[in-house]
Design a protein around this nucleic acid. Sequence first.
DNA 1: CAATTTACCTACCAGTTGGTAGAATGGCTG
DNA 2: CAGCCATTCTACCAACTGGTAGGTAAATTG
Lengths: 194, 194
Amino acid sequence: MSTRDRILDAALASFGTRGFESTSLDDLAAELGIRKQSILYYFASKDVLLGAVVDRTIAELGGVLEAALLRGERGWPRIEEVVRAVFRLASRQPAFLGLLREVNRMGPDVADEMATRMGSLVSRAVHFLAADMKAGLLRQADPRFVLFFVYSTVVGTATDPAARTAMGVPGGIAGLRQLRRELLGFLRAALAVK
Amino acid sequence: MSTRDRILDAALASFGTRGFESTSLDDLAAELGIRKQSILYYFASKDVLLGAVVDRTIAELGGVLEAALLRGERGWPRIEEVVRAVFRLASRQPAFLGLLREVNRMGPDVADEMATRMGSLVSRAVHFLAADMKAGLLRQADPRFVLFFVYSTVVGTATDPAARTAMGVPGGIAGLRQLRRELLGFLRAALAVK
DNA sequence: CAATTTACCTACCAGTTGGTAGAATGGCTG
DNA sequence: CAGCCATTCTACCAACTGGTAGGTAAATTG
């Protein structure tokens, strides 16, 4: 694995959990067994590194979501497919969704860039939802809001371990499976036609 | 308004939006028109200040939630009451819920303290949910998970403006009202007996 | 083989961080 | 008035921040 990729991986992990500003290049380098200047050799500045991490994350997330969207059948199965895909991603790389939340803290420029990057994916999802609602497969509602709520619920459950323990939701692998099952039940009820 | 309270307010606003580590005492002081050492006069260290902010936030949040819990009737009305109360709080002080999320970034000690502080409130909410489920007023599910999902959805929608704009959910006062309406519809469907 | 590029390093810097020491101010009480 | 206490300040400091300058060894290339 190339040094460049190792840096990107470590940066994603740290940015997504500790946060961008709380991550120092020195710590990052120490974690990798190299010097800070080697990071700056590959990425001209900390901001450039962040950009590269965000780019790679969005690209991978986009690919996973798109594949899931095309894989699932109309209506609920497609949504379940997407949620399962996100769950897989989140359990393999916990910092992944954390980085999405981190965007809120950084300037509106980063948020705007993210928005445009995700634009086509979002509009496709919205159209899917609208079509499924029209076909009577999902509860009638504003699809943009529904997408936003599903996103918030899934990302929230994955990125708020403090609340999770506070509310007595078990952890571990078995807990994760149960969480996924219950979450799917919750969302399915929220989207089902009454 | 006392200097101490002004410091607490400014700290809540900054910790809850920019984050704890990204907030410098100098900036905080400049914002208040005082020197950093005046902050350290009231709060021995930055961590002590954080503790005070968290304490006050949890206390106020606890009071608001408890009142809402007792105000609403069994079943969905009680939940709607709570969600509306949280919405009011979030729209008046946007940093409020942001601080809750911030806990994840800080050590597990802070998270544990938060968990114990919220413990009685959580267990009461869980018992309410369990009773309402048993009475057939809400969909049968594990009440801890349901509480966690509702929390994640509400807090997520309130603390992720980047995702909100990315998904084309309108902002402003009118947008906020619409968001509340759609969110209540979403949650109601998620909790209704099928 | 000479020249250049790649990949990583040491040394350093200016600015910012949280925090300490101690003085000036002003109100209150004896 | 004298003394005390609360409040806020100036002056510093050591540690850490992202980033620059420049060197070195190995690999690649002409």
